[in-house]
Write a protein that binds this DNA or RNA. Structure first.
Length: 198
DNA sequence: GTTAAGATCTGCT
DNA sequence: GCAGATCTTAACG
């Protein structure tokens, strides 16, 4: 499995968000490999984006976003869930890509175990909180370099050229969510929301 | 020290 | 389709 180099993550979040679709998110846990194809992402921009955690300057939580690109930004939300992001852009810019859903391809049994509940394969990792739970991603991976094990993103050299990418509005934001900064693999059955006709 | 809101998920109607 | 759970984070005093 080949990972992306740091130069790849240095592009701005809009570019990286699209570029990550169709590639693999992998976690080599002690119990075995967990892997899935990234099918849904959202870009959070350094400039003019009030919804971005970094928009109000550096804090203890978002510090990793201002560090070098290619690292994981993991934060806790709603008292229960984690969200997994990839830091992008130049160091100091404060931007990231939220990975919202993956299509399970390996270690579905482990994902199911990590979710602590019975659910269809279709719903194992079709949302930011679900994905982190299934992949056993927690606070300890905040700041982890995604070009190295045990948690990494690997290139898919086969299918990538076949996917069709669509952009839509971002999910779950109370304000300033009009821009189409959410990117999905069109036709995928593993999205967090059903694909609409817009 | 206190408070309000949050890049969500689940279960119930 | 909608409300509740649940607790960290950040802003404010």
């Amino acid at each position: 499995m080949l990972t992306f180099d740091h130069k790849f993550y240095k592009e701005n979040s809009l570019i990286v968000a699209r570029a990550l679709l169709g590639h693999y998110l992998c976690h080599e846990t002690e119990e075995g490999l967990i892997a899935g194809v990234i099918v849904e992402t959202e870009a959070y921009l350094a400039e003019n984006d009030p919804a971005c955690h970094a928009s109000r300057g550096i804090t203890k939580r978002n510090a990793v976003m201002f560090g070098p690109p290619g690292k994981a930004y993991v934060y806790f939300i709603y008292g229960k869930y984690f969200c997994f992001n990839v830091v992008t852009g130049n160091e100091g810019s404060g931007e990231a890509v939220l990975v919202r859903a993956v299509e399970p391809v390996f270690g579905q049994d482990l994902m199911s175990k990590n979710r602590f509940m019975d659910c269809e394969v279709l719903q194992l990792a079709n949302g930011p909180g679900k994905l982190c739970s299934a992949f056993a991603i927690n606070r300890s991976f905040n700041g982890h370099d995604l070009t190295s094990k045990p948690l990494f993103i690997a290139k898919n050299s086969n299918e990538h050229h076949r996917i069709k990418i669509k952009s839509t509005k971002r999910i779950g934001l109370s304000s300033h969510c009009e821009k189409k900064y959410r990117f999905i693999v069109s036709g995928s059955q593993y999205l967090s929301r059903r694909e609409t006709g817009d």
